[in-house]
Amino acid sequence: MNKQDGILIFILIILSLFGMAFFYLSEKDGPKKAVVYYEDQVVLEIDLTQKEEKTYQVEGFNGTVTIESKDGKVKVVSENSPLHLCSKQGYISSSYETIVCLPNKIVVAIEANDSLDAVAK
């Protein structure tokens, strides 16, 4: 390892730490919701302020994806894919965490639950 390698590695560590810090700090307090995307379309929104356990099903590219929410956390319970990476991932609850089920084109993200569908006036 030469000097340049050292500098490069140092810069990269700083960069990745900055990236992580940025995502951590961009986390907002307040009510959250889990948003499930099929590609770029929202196919399910789960209010994470509710405590009780609930199961939802969405249609993924390879069939049904079952999602469970409980205590403000959400996880993928079962899905049809070769490695089952996303159902092995477990619960997520912060906005810098995502569950990606690539073979099913499903992404579960946590977002602030502050958007309204409409305002009565």
């Binding site: 990269l12 990745s16 730490l17 990236g19 965490e97 995502t98 990606v100």
Partner: peptide
């Protein structure tokens, strides 16, 4: 490629982690 295939940019959240562990 993942972003391209599922037209979903949220995976960018993995980037700092992948970057970190890639070192």
């Amino acid at each position: 490629v993942a972003i391209l295939l599922i037209k979903q940019g949220l995976m960018i959240y993995y980037l700092p982690w992948l970057l970190f562990f890639s070192i």
